[in-house]
Amino acid sequence: MATLTVLKFDDSDGATQALEKLEELQKQSLIKVVDAATVSWPQGAKKPKTKQALDMTTIGALDGTFWGLLFGMIFFMPIMGALIGAAAGAIGGAFTDFGIDDRFINDVKGKVTEGTSALFLMSTDAVEDRVTEAFSSMNVEVLATNLSVEAEQKLKSAFQH
């Protein structure tokens, strides 16, 4: 079963540093990173910068469409407003099918704000105590939702390239 985890940092560089740490942990076989993306929202910027972290040729990586839709739902919908209201409802319903509900989206939206960053991570096989220990020196807030096997398969079928 995969876990979609959002690690929120109190500065705009924390997500990049965390991704580097995760790459080290993966080399030690302490976690398997299926896919990842970062959001950086520098102080004074009107909107965040987003970036898919993995090379799209990586086996198991999700299509960039997944991250684009998820980030759109979380960060850019207020900007787009009523112009795409019906489409937003359909997209939101699709994410619910994958185990990503309104509570999760609203929680992330409320916490990842100007001056912060976040790492969105799809992972499996984490040695939780070792991964937690590796991040103990970082000021990080963890928001996570476990995906059922069925939701993970739906997600991969819909968005894997």
Score class of each variant (00 low, 15 high):
K21W: 01
Q28W: 00
K46M: 11
A90K: 11
Q153F: 08
A86V: 01
A88M: 03
S123K: 11
L69M: 03
W67K: 05
Q26G: 11
K27N: 12
T96F: 02
G92Y: 02
S123Y: 05
D129P: 02
E150N: 09
A126L: 10
W41Q: 02
V149R: 09
A94I: 04
S117R: 02
A37R: 09
G44C: 07
E24V: 15
V112F: 02
A126R: 14
F98D: 03
E128F: 07
Q17E: 02
A88K: 03
F76S: 11
I31E: 08
T145K: 12
A118Y: 01
D129M: 05
G85Y: 05
Q153R: 12
E23I: 14
P78C: 06
A144M: 15
D107R: 09
T38F: 01
W41I: 10
A151P: 00
N106L: 03
D129Y: 07
T96N: 12
I91A: 02
M56Q: 12
E128H: 07
Q160D: 09
D125L: 06
Q52E: 11
S29P: 01
R130Y: 13
N106P: 00
A90I: 09
A151M: 00
V39Q: 07
E128Y: 06
N139S: 12
E133I: 01
I100C: 01
L22Y: 15
L25P: 15
L30K: 14
A37N: 06
F75Y: 14
S148Y: 10
A118N: 05
K27C: 08
T38C: 13
T57W: 02
D63A: 14
F159G: 06
T50C: 05
M122G: 15
Q52V: 15
L54W: 00
L62F: 03
A82S: 13
W41P: 02
N106F: 00
F159S: 07
K46L: 10
V127T: 14
N146A: 15
G60N: 03
A88P: 00
K154F: 03
L25T: 15
V149E: 13
E20W: 04
M77Y: 02
Q43K: 11
F104M: 05
D35I: 08
I59K: 00
G68N: 12
I59G: 07
N146E: 15
F75H: 11
A37M: 12
S117A: 01
L62R: 03
D35S: 11
G110Q: 04
F95W: 14
S123H: 13
R130I: 14
T38H: 05
L54K: 06
W67C: 00
M56P: 09
F159N: 04
G110I: 02
T132S: 15
S148K: 10
K49V: 10
T57C: 04
V142I: 14
D102I: 04
V108I: 14
F135C: 04
V112L: 05
K109T: 03
V142L: 10
S148A: 12
F120V: 13
K21Y: 03
A90N: 09
K46S: 04
F76Y: 13
S29H: 10
S29K: 14
D63Y: 15
F135P: 03
L19T: 03
A134Y: 01
V127Q: 11
N139I: 07
Q17K: 08
L155M: 10
V39C: 02
G115W: 14
A61V: 10
K46T: 08
E128L: 15
V149W: 07
K154S: 07
K154Q: 07
G44P: 01
G115F: 09
Q28F: 00
